[in-house]
Design a protein around this nucleic acid. Structure first.
Lengths: 113, 113
DNA sequence: TGTACACGTCTACATTGTAGAATGTCAAGA
DNA sequence: TCTTGACATTCTACAATGTAGACGTGTACA
């Protein structure tokens, strides 16, 4: 079943999936939030990202693991996320669908002032 | 206000906006439906398309006009849609945002069997 | 201690995505 | 003329997604 993702879901999923995160391997909530804000170029609340993260996990597209005691920070627990095979598949299918929708359309479209 | 569109909205809007519709100038509901199904490569109900069309019109991204008596068909009225400047802008902004989200990501992503 | 942060959780609601039934018209054939 | 089917649109309804904002807790440092 073609699992087509929404625009925001793609942003969140890709923040985790992209090969070389500017943030290194820091794939925990807040880092994902920053990456999403950067790519989307606008303010996004933490709640928006976490809610999406929870839903993606529930669908099996990503998984998470809470790790305690980080070297640098005190014993602050953080939840790290990783992408699952289904997540990669969904991302690929979504991009293919969006590309098909845009194929043959000259971009940017003219007409708007 | 960055008006970012969802995946389905893009498909519907582009069915109307694309320069050379395979269907000619037939930009009425059913024709849009067929074009969307073709691009998305899956079944989509008429209700899904019309509901989206209504919402896009309410937001001012498209406009519609009911025309009676078509030459070929009897006096069958059809609702024709056209894209508005705001619709073109939304489409352009959305594509720019999605491209930014995917930028630097090798595609297709590897990892899924 | 108190004042910033950094991180994550939870609640709640608006917007989108999508199905399916209902209604009405024309065209073709029984 | 009655029936059937394709074509078109509308309406109702609900599930999924998008998004804000408040809250709790631990850390760092003045």
């Amino acid at each position: 079943m073609a699992e087509i993702l929404g625009t925001f879901e793609q942003a969140v999923l890709l923040a985790i999936a992209r090969p070389k995160t500017p943030l290194g391997k820091q794939r925990y909530g807040r880092a994902v939030l920053k990456e999403v804000q950067h790519r989307l170029n606008r303010e996004v609340t933490a709640g928006a990202v976490y809610a999406t993260l929870d839903r993606l996990e529930k669908k099996g597209l990503i998984s998470s693991e809470v790790r305690e005691g980080d070297e640098q920070r005190g014993g602050l627990p953080r939840r790290y996320f990783s992408i699952e095979p289904d997540g990669i598949r969904a991302l690929n299918e979504t991009k293919a669908a969006v590309d098909r929708v845009w194929s043959g359309v000259p971009w940017p479209l003219k007409g708007a002032v």
